[in-house]
Design a protein around this nucleic acid. Structure first.
Length: 861
RNA sequence: GCGGGCGUGGUGGAAUUGGUAGACACGUCAGAUUUAGGUUCUGAUGCCGCAAGGCGUGGGGGUUCAAGUCCCUCCGCCCGCACCA
């Protein structure tokens, strides 16, 4: 019996699938459809085995659903616009498009030997004018339908390169290339008005019952609905036209303890003061040197400056409070001003202690007279607190009731307005970059902002462009922006902003249903194929990409590009874990790590050395595979050595798919060994085709039959539940059972044949090549891609006799074999007769006997 | 800082969702096959203990007949934070 030769077998079946056009699908109203999609990759270079886990998982689902009789759509494409292509241009002088298309070709080539059941005729790349032209058409429709806004917003600005920086390009508050401290700068930008849809996007989360709870929770928190109040604080002396400062608060019940006002450095009042007072101007300028990311703002040291202004307390007009500028107050949230109540907010307390401001309790815990000292008093809103001398007459009640009552009280006296707010901000899509989808509008000196005409789409990117890292390449281009106004025909200038690449990925799933259509989508195709039945990708996209796609789906319905039923485009979501690998590093002279690829390292039990020099290597924790840490494994190396099926089997085994899995050489070898074992087993299988089961079977044959049907039922349930590691464990067990059933006899032969046929079909979604080869060896001329999933007999899959554990006082002391459907009192009687139980009882009656049929017996003494 | 998650033998993990902790696999050990190595096959393998038995799911506390699972608290690691994709 020869070894299974993946290198010859795998290409053979791939060719046969291709010849049969097995994975090219079209709309077929007579068959149920199933749309499975993995988040499409960014073509960053070569893929590593980490990527393959994602595609193999999708392929497993696709092949399984196909066997279950579905018309399966399983497409692939590339998220091809983005920053890394521009970086390659800046650093290596490559044209972004050339670099991107080269990477795409390499990645496609790397994916092919994996044997994925992908319909490559539907391939798309977001940098194709065919794709982004339709995206521009979508944009124009959304503009007309009122989903688009244009207004000022803040960006990271590199003062030396005169360019906008992505958050990623800001390192410790400095520009990545120039090292210059980053400034915040206002720019007029394009926005999608996603915040108008906040309530809808929030309430619809309830319907996403096939999404992970954690993702739904993250989305809810991101949208961040809050009920609060806007309160006007009158200035003791008006400053120009400004006579009140409007604050938003979700904790108006603490208003009694308010001791200062904090406004954003970008608040109109702060800006007004800036012009007169150099000290304030300097402070504000300093504040604006923080990067724009929320993380950077929150982590920055909390600083403030007293403006010298004061406001009156709205409820106690005799009391005045100082107005401070605080670097932690964001102009984008609420009103850009907050009142500080140090006793009941830790940040306010820290601020108050730092600058010597008043700390006064608004409430205490019931029965306590302790004042706030080092820690702010912030009990859960459902907990009862004792308000101190509250203006609305609130005594002991929950904070939630305190808040509601305060809002009512203040509204009744016109001191404030109760409002519902969302944390969700509008989606700024303007990018001052080359490698993205141009925003299809024109700036006309006569007509202002004018949408480009649809017949002029696509507004294509120019090929001749100079990328240096400074300025905006499209704006610098000598001729590209010069055009005529679509309305009046006079000379006008194109918009030089391109779209955020998140826009590209917010509708590609819809485009896959009709990738060559001359409109963004094709109604009949979209109606048939949408929604995506199973979407698979990393948790890192749990918020932004998914939220934007949900917004886009609704906007596409409103503009007639998707059917009403597609509002939630992803019916089921699965977030898979990453593939990790140890890192290997030696130290450079200056102490910085120098990373080494796994193939450069000789790994032994207690350490690692460099293959070439024998130098000792530091072994780092397994982390996500990344080019920069060199801890990547190339799929082609694994395929060359073991074959695609081994790689596929390994990445699906052991770890649950939602968790990270560490790539280890030993694990891969184990996978390869298993496939070889299955291959050897095939040689021992009866070649006779199967007829009907023999009427009477010996016990061992009957036992194997039961194992077969139990396994098929179990693997089916595991795959449906995305428990692929468990499905594989079950298959291992099953293979062990087949291997052990080695006696002679016609009935055992029959059972072994049945078992092995089931085995070949069960491993098919994971390891399709060897499964096809086994199927052919079993004498079948049809391919497994066209073979239905094995069925199972419920009666055979069920155990008639089960083993129940018997506990005494919660500790397992004995076991009991009973009929599966034994009655409760019958089980109790048998348990109390058990010799071990009798010994523990010492002749006394038990205090209590708990019988959970089918589960456990617990005798309490 | 804020939001979310994870933590189980030497290792990856399983545990029917409150009911036998450690399925399955890797590794290790022993035996068989083999000229040898590799392969393959068989068996053992949570820890302590000769045993009876005891201990055991990151640490501490709690609820329960029963806790890996629920609650409180602490520790460690990972992901996201709106211009990375």
């Amino acid at each position: 019996m020869s070894r299974y030769a993946a290198r010859e077998v795998e290409p053979k079946w791939q060719a046969r699938w291709a010849d049969a056009r097995a994975f090219e699908v079209s709309r077929d109203p007579d068959r149920p459809k199933y749309y499975v999609l993995e988040m499409f990759p960014y073509p960053s270079g070569r893929i590593h085995v980490g990527h393959t886990r994602n595609y193999v998982m999708g392929d497993l689902v696709a092949r399984y659903k196909r066997a279950r009789g579905f018309n399966v759509l399983h497409p692939m494409g590339f998220d091809a616009f983005g920053l890394p292509a521009e970086n390659a241009a800046i650093e290596r002088g490559r044209h972004p498009e050339e670099w991107t298309r080269e990477n795409m070709a390499v990645m496609r080539e790397q994916m092919e030997p994996l044997g994925l059941s992908i319909d490559w005729t539907r391939e798309l790349a977001t940098c194709d004018p065919e794709y982004y032209g339709q995206q521009q058409a979508l944009f124009l429709d959304m503009l007309e339908a009122g989903f688009v806004a244009r207004r000022a917003s803040v960006v990271n600005w590199d003062p030396i390169d005169q360019t906008v920086l992505a958050n990623e390009q800001v390192i410790d508050g400095k520009g990545w290339r120039t090292g210059a401290p980053v400034e915040r700068r206002e720019l007029t930008q394009w926005f999608f008005r996603i915040s108008d849809m906040a309530e809808e996007l929030l309430s619809a989360i309830d319907g996403l019952d096939q999404w992970p709870d954690k993702v739904r929770l993250m989305q809810q928190n991101w949208i961040g609905k809050s009920r609060g109040i806007e309160i006007g604080f009158p200035l003791t002396e008006p400053l120009g036209a400004i006579d009140t400062v409007l604050c938003y608060s979700t904790r108006p019940d603490t208003l009694r303890g308010a001791s200062f006002l904090a406004i954003s450095p970008d608040h109109p009042l702060a800006k007004a003061l800036e012009t007169e007072q150099p000290e304030i101007a300097a402070f504000n300028a300093e504040c604006r040197k923080t990067a724009t990311s929320e993380e950077a703002l929150e982590k920055a040291e909390k600083k403030g400056l007293d403006t010298g202004l004061a406001v009156r307390h709205p409820v106690y007009p005799d009391q005045t409070m100082p107005v401070w500028i605080g670097n932690f107050v964001l102009m984008d949230y609420g009103t850009g001003a907050v009142f500080g109540c140090p006793a009941h907010d830790q940040r306010d307390l820290d601020f108050a202690r730092k600058y010597g401001l008043v700390v006064e309790n608004a409430f205490r815990m019931p029965g306590s007279d302790a004042d706030v000292d080092a820690e702010a008093l912030v009990p859960p809103k459902t907990e009862t607190v004792a308000y101190i001398d509250h203006f609305a007459g609130i005594g002991e009640t929950t904070s939630q009731r305190g808040i509601d009552t305060t809002i009512d009280w203040m509204e009744a006296r016109s001191l404030g307005n109760g409002v519902t707010r969302y944390r969700l901000r509008d989606w700024g899509i303007s990018r001052q970059r080359y490698w993205g989808c141009p925003i299809p509008v024109v700036h006309c000196p006569n007509c202002g902002v004018v949408p480009e005409k649809k017949e002029n789409l696509p507004v294509a990117l120019p090929k001749d462009v100079e990328l240096t890292g400074s300025g905006n390449p499209l704006a610098r281009h000598p001729t590209w922006a010069i055009t005529t106004c679509p309305k009046c025909g006079s000379e006008a200038r194109r918009e030089t902003d391109t779209m955020d690449t998140f826009v590209d990925s917010s509708w590609y799933f819809a485009r896959f249903t009709a990738p060559r259509a001359k409109t963004p989508t094709e109604p009949a195709e979209a109606a048939y194929w949408m929604n995506v039945d199973q979407y698979i990708g990393g948790v890192e996209h749990a918020i932004l990409h998914l939220l934007y796609s949900r917004f886009f789906a609704r906007a596409m319905i409103a503009t007639g590009h998707l059917p009403e039923t597609a509002a939630e485009p992803f019916s089921a979501l699965f977030t898979q874990g990453m593939l990790t690998h140890e890192t290997y590093a030696t130290r450079l002279a200056d102490g910085r790590p120098r990373w080494h690829a796994p193939e450069e390292v000789r790994r032994s039990e207690d350490g690692a050395t460099l293959v070439e020099t024998g130098e000792l290597v530091e072994i780092g924790q397994p982390i996500k595979m990344s080019k920069s840490k060199k801890n990547v494994i190339a799929p082609e190396d694994i395929i060359a050595q073991f074959g695609a099926d081994t790689a596929r089997w390994f990445v699906m085994s052991d770890s649950p798919p939602e968790r990270d899995v560490e790539w280890t050489a030993a694990g891969v070898e184990g996978a390869a060994r298993f496939l070889q074992r299955v291959w050897r087993m095939a040689a021992e299988m009866p070649v006779a085709p199967m007829g009907t089961p023999l009427p009477a079977m010996e016990a061992d044959a009957e036992a194997l039959r039961k194992a077969t049907h139990k396994t098929v039922a179990g693997v089916t349930a595991d795959i449906e539940g995305f428990a692929f590691n468990k499905a594989i464990a079950r298959i291992y067990e099953f293979a062990n059972a087949i291997g052990k059933a080695s006696g002679a006899g016609a009935d055992l032969d029959w059972a072994r044949r049945e078992a092995f046929e089931a085995l070949a079909r069960l491993i098919n979604p994971m390891t399709p090549h060897i499964a096809e080869e086994l199927w052919a060896r079993l004498g079948y001329e049809t391919m497994l891609v066209d073979t239905p999933w094995p069925h199972w007999d419920e009666d055979l899959a069920r155990d008639d006799v089960i083993t129940l554990p018997i506990q005494v006082n919660g500790k397992k002391r004995a076991e009991l074999s009973v009929a599966r459907d034994a009655a409760k009192d019958e089980i109790e009687r048998l348990a109390l007769d058990d010799p071990t139980v009798v010994r523990f009882l010492e002749g006394k009656p038990p205090k209590k006997v708990i019988v959970v049929p089918g589960r456990i017996v617990n005798v309490v003494l």
